[in-house]
Design a protein around this nucleic acid. Structure first.
Lengths: 177, 177
DNA sequence: CACCAAAGTTAGTGACCAATTACTAATCAA
DNA sequence: TTGATTAGTAATTGGTCACTAACTTTGGTG
């Protein structure tokens, strides 16, 4: 048994939670599954986070934050006027190397819809704010043209969908990219 | 108590299921909730469908089928070379009048991902086949250019996302459409 | 080295939920 | 009118799950 500080454990819980929630969604993931992946007893999660929802929120925030960071770094290392290509390449890289992140995004979106339908607007607000930072980041990097930003993010969302649906890379639904 | 034929009941179950699953997803929806909406006892659902999964599959098929029909009708009544505009207008109409259908789509996508991760490939195959018909329908209507088809569907998927996230129509994330 | 705070566990509880079984009520055809 | 078929319910079961309470272990420090 490896002992860690509460802060370090919280960190591993977030990592494990992203993996599990990405696969099975909020309702489909048991805290038991997360605990097992962390290597810790299930009740101990509730020492580190007050509720399952809090774990999901932390995982969601982290996922959106990291996605934003991926794009930021891509743009940073890109030639002037090359932001679009650099960000597109970064997205392609995500498809192959980190599809978990894309699927977690999908899970976040439907989780917001469910929370909203259940009368919880706190969660939606928090996620919308985080997603807006993603939007604004892309908007700025792409030169401030809303149509361009929309086109870029739209392709991203189609990619998320095709990955979720499990279409293989050589399928014709990918032919327009 | 209103008696119906099994076939009619199955029909109302599918309608109710679309509403409930769209709101809360596969795992988040109880068969009790569907039965209540239909106005029938919960165990009776299992006379009409073998499992909860079968209900979801029927609802998913219906949803994709109806979406395809919306686009087919839009194109049918459109002037030559006006397919893109007609289909875009049809999508706009869905946002306002039938967001349930868009949210059900999102639920379908993540449900496929979860099923696939759990080792069930039957479900994914069925949904991919149905989604392909949507893709092919759009592809044909838009003149057979894969890039054009991708652009159209991509915008659709971004719309699904923004609707799920609950951004109001006047928010700046909608400004690029 | 003793002690204490922080890390971690074991054992439960009540709520919910998909599915089964065994039953009742309505419709219709002869 | 009866007998069979079909629509529908009540009661229950086995299982899962988020969360709590009460207890144990471990490492750092005075």
């Amino acid at each position: 048994m490896v002992r860690m500080s509460a802060e370090e454990r919280r960190e591993s819980v977030i990592r494990a939670a992203i993996t599990e929630f990405a696969r099975a969604g909020y309702k489909g993931t048991s805290t038991e599954a997360i605990a097992r992946r962390v290597g810790v007893s299930q009740p101990y999660l509730f020492r580190l986070f007050p509720t399952k929802e809090a774990i999901f929120l932390a995982a969601a925030h982290r996922c959106l934050e990291e996605t934003r960071e991926v794009f930021r770094k891509a743009v940073e290392g890109a030639p002037p006027r090359g932001a679009l290509q650099a960000m597109a390449a970064a997205y392609d890289h995500l498809i192959a190397e980190d599809p978990e992140k894309l699927q977690m995004q999908m899970q976040i979106y439907v989780a917001v819809a469910s929370a909203e339908a259940a009368g919880d607007h706190e969660f939606g607000s928090a996620i919308r704010a985080a997603w807006l930072e993603l939007w604004d980041g892309a908007h700025l990097a792409l030169g401030g043209d809303p149509a361009e930003t929309t086109r870029f993010l739209a392709k991203g969302m189609l990619i998320n969908t095709l990955v979720s649906l499990g279409f293989p890379p050589d399928h014709r639904v990918w032919s327009g990219f």
